[in-house]
């Protein structure tokens, strides 16, 4: 099984004619992902990396039957690209683009919730089901097919965790980067529920960071609805209040969203929290042994 994406996924790349879009389309193809269409308005009829380009997402759906998309269009146009994908009936929308205005996402979020689509991101590394389907910018080779579902708000920190899990022989069922922005399409809570139902996933690792209350909400759901072992790590224990740490979402404001609060909430839900980023993989091991 695995969640969201797998062997049957037929992928579209929006913004395929841009530098990043083309580069990562090639990366996904090399990994074995079925990238079957691209979309750039005004460039329909071209081919990029052997993939046909369409003017509209609706065209691409009709001609190639795509059911997932990854978005590399520039930030000012990302909201529009997401809305176009949803309108065309694509079920998994992965927005990689960084720097999307927050109020654009307010509107997009409402539309996503009113549809059947799942939006991952924006400002995220993407989604990967190892040895089946890679959507995004993560280095494929560090992943191993396995039993741990990975959810994270960050990019390279996820690679770090994936690397540790692969080296410990645990591997991953599916890894999802939620994105580092204040408003993203999918939350820890949404994915915890999907991983709970997935037969292949035996344990879950979630990596949060300072800012917001998404981790606290996740802790409440773990306590009540998740019976699989869960481990976690929170980045930003030493971050000072009021300073934004790279991610637009990573800011402690009004005394809310501190690492201390988050760690306490996670631990009280029975989640094993790694103190050091070097111990994310072993925290999963401990959680599995305790279960």
């Amino acid at each position: 099984m695995s969640i969201l994406v797998g062997k049957e996924t037929r992928l579209l790349c929006q913004g395929i004619t841009g530098q990043a879009g083309e580069f990562h389309t090639r990366g996904c193809l090399d990994y074995g992902t079925q990238v079957v269409a691209g979309c750039t308005p005004g460039k329909g009829g071209q081919e990029v990396a052997g993939v046909p380009v369409f003017d509209t997402v609706a065209d691409a759906v009709k001609q190639t039957g795509v059911n997932a998309t990854m978005i590399f269009v520039p930030a000012p146009f990302t909201a529009d690209a997401i809305l176009e994908a949803i309108d065309a009936g694509i079920s998994v929308v992965v927005a990689i683009t960084e720097g999307v205005p927050v109020l654009d996402m307010v509107r997009v979020f409402e539309k996503v919730r009113a549809s059947d689509a799942v939006l991952i991101g924006p400002n995220c590394p993407g989604v990967i089901t190892p040895e089946e389907c890679k959507i995004g910018i993560m280095p494929g080779y560090i992943h191993r097919k396995g039993k741990v579902g990975v959810i994270s708000r960050s990019g390279t920190l996820t690679y770090e965790a994936v690397w540790q899990l692969s080296n410990l022989g645990l591997g991953q069922s599916t890894c999802v980067g939620l994105g580092g922005d204040p408003i993203v399409g999918t939350s820890f809570v949404d994915l915890l529920r999907l991983f709970q139902q997935d037969d292949e996933t035996e344990a879950i690792l979630m990596m949060g960071e300072i800012g917001g209350t998404a981790e606290e909400e996740a802790a409440a759901v773990v306590a009540e609805q998740i019976d699989k072992p869960v481990a976690a790590f929170i980045a930003g224990r030493t971050a000072p209040p009021g300073k934004r740490m790279g991610h637009a979402g990573a800011i402690i404001s009004g005394g809310k969203g501190t690492a201390t609060e988050k760690v306490a909430a996670l631990e009280s839900a029975g989640i094993v929290v790694a103190e050091s980023p070097a111990d994310m993989g072993t925290a999963v091991q401990r959680a599995m042994q305790q279960a």
Binding site: S152, S154, G180, F233, T238, S276
Partner: peptide, 30 residues
């Protein structure tokens, strides 16, 4: 000097955990 915001924050935390004090947060991006 770190690539990626999450890893950069975690690196600061790691330094603190081992008794040091970070002078900055610096993400050089991807």
């Amino acid at each position: 000097l770190v690539n990626g915001a999450g890893l950069a924050m975690s690196t600061m935390d790691l330094i603190k955990l081992h008794g040091g004090e970070p002078a900055n947060f610096l993400d050089v991006g991807g």
